[in-house]
Structure formats: structure tokens, C-alpha cells
Design a protein around this nucleic acid. Structure first.
Lengths: 207, 181
DNA sequence: ATATTACTTTTCAAAGC
DNA sequence: GCTTTAAAAAGTAATAT
């Protein structure tokens, strides 16, 4: 009947409006965080998948959008922390984290734990460090991983310590404060990871 | 050789009455707090069995922080005695049931959490928490595994399940070890 | 620069919002 | 879902000395 059609049109109108809102939210957060196009597209695909499976029910569009972006960043190897995404979202870190867990499970997306190595290019670039420091930091992280020095530790903290050490070794030193600020960790964390890495990997950092 | 597993927390529930006057109970009990605006239950802390008890208007009571079921029962008997002395209508020997237990133990080795996280029944987000979350369906418990090899088992209804769960996980981890060898 | 204290995760019941 | 209670694990954070 006519009413049925009207309802369908209304529903489809609402769906389109919601999708448009979600996509604009993805774009807003993505541009604020300076995320590349492929990440936005990946997040959009995840969001559409969530809509198709009815995962939005009981959840806010903004929360799902933020979670999709968080997942997309990790998939594309350009991770942002939950805190970084929460900073530019209206949704808090706890809600984004729980929504991320929910959609990744429902969409059968299993992401490996964030690799500290994935944070190195971004942090090193923000610190204006040369490619040699980046390579050195990555090799330190690979050795650290083999020795179990990264398990259970926050990826950003380990990455920050590796970059700090590499910057000193390559003669382009950045202070712990500078590295801590771009990595979003405290100097105490860098010091703790620094001690662990230099001791267990026999790295001589003579100043 | 049974692994040494320690019970570090026992949560128990029971019924000590029908319509408890929490305002009155709060005045009678020593370390009691009752702020209905904040939480509907009365909170009471005991020091000898070091526990915390939550008493509700319905007469339902929860006891947390005990190291064993008997410790929880001792604590509940003490509270019952105090309330009875104050002239309240309280059930004498209520049947208590274990709602949850938390246990700790050790793996005896330093596991590779990244490898274990490939299992579908696990969650591992070091950015958020250093422990890997391992959900077992039989027995239905949750196990936290740390890089140090320390383990926390929670969601336990009976002590035996801690051993069953721990051995099941050990077996799975051995198989994983061969896979990633 | 180090020492506290506190919060992250998981589990469970209770009554009410 | 949240509120409150307890407890362990290890990392990180905020604040005190």
C-alpha cells in the first residue's frame, strides 16, 4: 500500500541522512588527525558494514564512526591511540574502545596488537628526525620484540624510547620531553623503557 | 603436581531478612555508610575477616573481599549478631552462595602474548591493559595472562574450576608453542 | 629523580535510575 | 549502561618529596 511505500521512503531517507552524517563525521575526524584518504575509505567501508549488520542499534553514530576510524588506522598501519581519537570526538575513550571491540568482533575483523614500529614514522617525522634515526629505532624495536621487551608495554611508550635512543645514537638528539610530547606519554615512561631497552639489548648510549 | 593456585577474593550473596531498615542498621553498625542517593545498598567494612558487606533493603546481602567462603560466613555471622542485638528481625543461619572467586597463579614461563592473541577466544590490547584476556567457555571463566607469566583467573564459582581452567590453558599454550616454534 | 597513590582490565551479586 | 564492593596482575599517570 501507499503507506508502506511512504514508510520505506522515510526509512531510506533516515538511513541516507544517518550515513551522510556518519561519513561527514569520519571526514571531520580524519582531517583533524591528518589521516590519509585510504584510511578514511577503509573506515567508511567498516562503517557501512556495521550498518548492514545492524550494529548501530543502541549506539551513537559518532561512537561507531570513531571506532571505525580507530580500526581503520590500525589496519592501514598508521595507528592513532584511543586517546588521540577521543580528543577530537564527542565520544569518550571508553565508549570508543568498547564499540571498537564490538564491531571488530561482529564484522569478524581480528586485528593484531598495535606494533610499536607503526608509530615510528609519524613520531620521527614530527620530531624532524632523519631516516637513519627512523631505521635505527625500527631495528631496536625488532630486537626488543624478539626478546619479549615489548609484550604488555604500551606501544607508544616503547616506540618513543626506541626513537629517543636512536636519536642519541645518530647524533641528532631530541630530549625526553620532546619525544614524550609527540608520543603522548610521560618522561617517566620513556625513562623506564629506555632503561629496559639499553640494558637488555646492550646498547651503549654515552652522552 | 597441582599448580599452586591462591584464592585472593571471594564474593558471596545471601539473604538475612525481608525488609531491613537501612537507616537504623547504619546507626547500629560500626563502619557503616548508607547513602541511598549514591547507591541503594548499605556499605559495611569489617576488619577481622577483612571484607566489605553490602546490605539491601530487601534483606539481600553481598560480602566481598573474603579469602574463603568460610571467612565470608564468619563475617556475615558477625553482622547478623550485631543487628540482632539491636533488635532487628534477622534470619539466623542463612545459606550463602558463592557468586564469584578470583584466583592467582603462575604459568612457570614467560609467554609470548602476541602469539596467544591469535586465538579467537582472546583479546590483547597492550595500549589499554598489559594483560591478555582469555575467555574459556568450559568452565566459564576469564583468565588474564601477563608477560611475566603471572595469571589471574576470575568468574569462578568453585575452586576446582580454577585447576580445570588452568590445565586447559596450559595444554592450549603448549600446542601453540609448537605451532610458533 | 624516585616514591606514593591511583587508575586501566576481568568477574559477580544487589536495587534503582 | 551506570552507581558500589573486593582482589590480583603490570603498565602508565599524576602528584608528592
Amino acid at each position: 500500500r501507499l503507506r508502506k511505500w511512504q514508510r520505506r521512503i522515510r526509512v531510506s531517507d533516515a538511513s541516507e541522512r544517518n550515513l551522510a552524517f556518519a561519513l561527514s563525521e569520519l571526514d571531520r575526524i580524519a582531517s583533524k588527525l591528518g589521516l590519509p584518504r585510504n584510511v578514511r575509505e577503509n573506515a567508511a567501508v567498516l562503517y557501512r558494514g556495521a550498518v548492514e549488520k545492524g550494529l548501530i542499534r543502541g549506539r551513537s553514530i559518532e561512537g561507531v564512526a570513531a571506532a571505525a576510524l580507530y580500526a581503520a588506522c590500525r589496519r592501514c598501519k598508521v595507528p592513532r591511540t584511543l586517546d588521540e581519537i577521543a580528543e577530537v570526538s564527542r565520544v569518550d575513550r571508553k565508549e570508543i574502545g568498547r564499540t571498537y571491540r564490538f564491531i571488530s568482533r561482529e564484522l569478524n575483523i581480528r586485528l593484531a596488537p598495535t606494533n610499536p614500529v607503526d608509530y615510528v614514522p609519524r613520531f620521527a617525522s614530527e620530531l624532524k628526525l632523519p631516516g637513519e634515526v627512523e631505521s635505527k629505532a625500527i631495528s631496536i624495536l625488532k630486537d626488543a620484540g624478539k626478546k619479549g621487551l615489548t609484550s604488555g608495554r604500551g606501544p607508544t611508550g616503547v616506540a618513543a624510547a626506541a626513537i629517543y635512543i636512536a636519536s642519541v645514537l645518530q647524533g641528532t638528539r631530541r630530549t625526553q620531553r620532546e619525544v614524550a610530547d609527540v608520543a603522548g606519554v610521560t618522561e617517566v615512561t620513556i625513562r623506564n623503557r629506555y632503561k629496559e631497552l639499553t640494558e637488555h639489548l646492550d646498547i651503549d648510549v654515552t652522552l | 603436581m597441582e599448580p599452586e593456585i591462591k584464592i585472593v577474593n571471594v564474593v558471596v550473596s545471601t539473604q538475612i531478612g525481608t525488609d531491613i531498615d537501612l537507616e537504623y542498621a547504619a546507626d547500629v553498625l560500626d563502619n557503616a555508610e548508607y547513602e541511598p542517593e549514591q547507591f541503594p545498598g548499605l556499605v559495611c567494612r569489617l576488619s577481622d575477616p577483612k571484607v566489605a558487606l553490602l546490605i539491601f533493603r530487601s534483606g539481600k546481602l553481598n560480602c566481598t573481599g573474603a579469602k574463603s567462603k568460610s571467612d565470608a560466613e564468619i563475617a556475615i555471622k558477625k553482622i547478623i549478631a550485631e543487628l540482632k542485638e539491636a533488635g532487628m528481625e534477622i534470619i539466623d543461619n542463612p545459606e550463602v552462595s558463592i557468586q564469584n572467586m578470583v584466583a592467582t597463579t603462575e604459568l612457570g614461563m614467560e609467554p609470548n602474548l602476541d602469539d596467544i592473541s591469535t586465538l579467537e577466544c582472546t583479546e590483547y590490547e597492550p595500549e589499554q591493559f598489559p594483560g591478555l584476556v582469555y575467555r574459556l567457555s568450559d568452565p566459564k571463566v576469564v583468565v588474564l595472562i601477563f608477560g611475566s607469566g603471572k595469571v589471574v583467573i576470575t568468574g569462578l564459582k568453585k575452586i576446582d574450576d580454577a585447576y580445570t581452567a588452568f590445565n586447559k590453558i596450559l595444554t592450549t599454550l603448549k600446542e601453540l608453542e609448537e605451532e610458533f616454534y
